[in-house]
Amino acid sequence: MSKVYDFIVKDKAGKDFALKQLEGKVILIVNVASKCGFTPQYAGLEKLYKKYNDQGLEILGFPCNQFGGQEPGTQEEIGQFCSLNYGVTFPIMQKVDVNGDKAEPLYEFMKKEKTGPLGMKRIKWNFEKFLIDKNGNVVERMSSLTKPESIDPKIAALLK
């Protein structure tokens, strides 16, 4: 596996979702949670999605309950929360682990491609972001502190 497109993940209904279908798009992959201090980033992510989706941006949110138990809900509860509170229209995928023995293989790949500070592989907290170019390469990893609006110029550049 050498590109993000090589992976198959699960959508919110638990059905296979081949990332190959996003080939040629810029993708922002984020591990999300409903009860986190960074949860308001949903609004910024949705703003980016609305601005760039028709130009080839896809955002995938992967709920994760590994950080302070901040995503305890069912798949349905998570979807309702995102929609009602933040008007989220980008895909929220199946809840996953991003670290440990049961980590989603896509996350294992992305962490290997782009390590965090000091070469750290593990995801540090909710709302860590991976930016993928049109060729399926992981071009950048951003911390939870990176606000979605600050990613705007990077997305615009990759979409050109």
Rank of each mutant, 00 (worst) to 15 (best):
N126D: 11
F67C: 06
L48A: 11
T115Q: 13
Q21I: 12
I29K: 01
G61S: 03
A18E: 14
K95M: 13
L118Y: 12
S2Y: 05
P40L: 13
K134I: 06
P91V: 00
E104K: 03
D101E: 15
N99W: 11
V9H: 07
P105K: 05
P117H: 04
K129N: 07
L118E: 13
I8N: 08
S2P: 00
T89K: 10
L106R: 02
E149S: 14
L84F: 15
K10Q: 15
K129H: 07
P148M: 10
I155F: 04
V4P: 02
I59P: 01
S34E: 12
S143H: 08
D6V: 06
M120T: 14
P63S: 00
A43Y: 08
I92C: 05
M1G: 07
I123F: 09
G87W: 11
Y107G: 01
V9W: 09
E108T: 14
N126V: 03
V9E: 05
E46W: 07
E58M: 09
K50H: 08
K35V: 07
K20R: 13
K20C: 01
G79V: 06
Q21D: 14
F7Y: 15
N99Y: 10
I123R: 02
G14V: 12
L60K: 00
S144H: 12
N31V: 08
N126L: 03
L106C: 06
Y52M: 03
F7D: 08
Q21K: 14
I8Y: 01
P63D: 04
Y52R: 04
K111G: 10
E113D: 05
G44R: 04
P40Q: 12
K51F: 03
L118W: 10
E113V: 00
N53H: 15
D54A: 14
V88W: 03
D11S: 10
C64W: 12
L19K: 05
E113P: 00
L84K: 13
Y52D: 06
G116E: 07
F62M: 08
T115K: 14
F7T: 06
N85S: 14
L57G: 03
E140C: 00
A103Y: 12
G73R: 04
F127G: 01
T74Y: 05
Q21E: 14
P63H: 01
P72G: 06
G87F: 11
F127K: 01
P63M: 01
L131C: 03
K154T: 10
E128N: 08
N99P: 07
L48R: 06
L131Y: 05
G44D: 07
K47A: 15
E46V: 08
P148L: 11
Y52A: 02
Q75E: 13
G119R: 03
K15T: 10
K160G: 15
G87Y: 11
K50T: 13
V32A: 07
S83H: 13
S144M: 10
D152K: 04
Q94D: 15
K51L: 12
I27L: 15
V96K: 07
G87P: 12
E46L: 02
G24T: 09
Y107I: 04
K47E: 15
G73N: 02
N31S: 07
N53E: 14
F130W: 02
I78D: 05
A156G: 03
K134Q: 12
Q55F: 08
N126M: 05
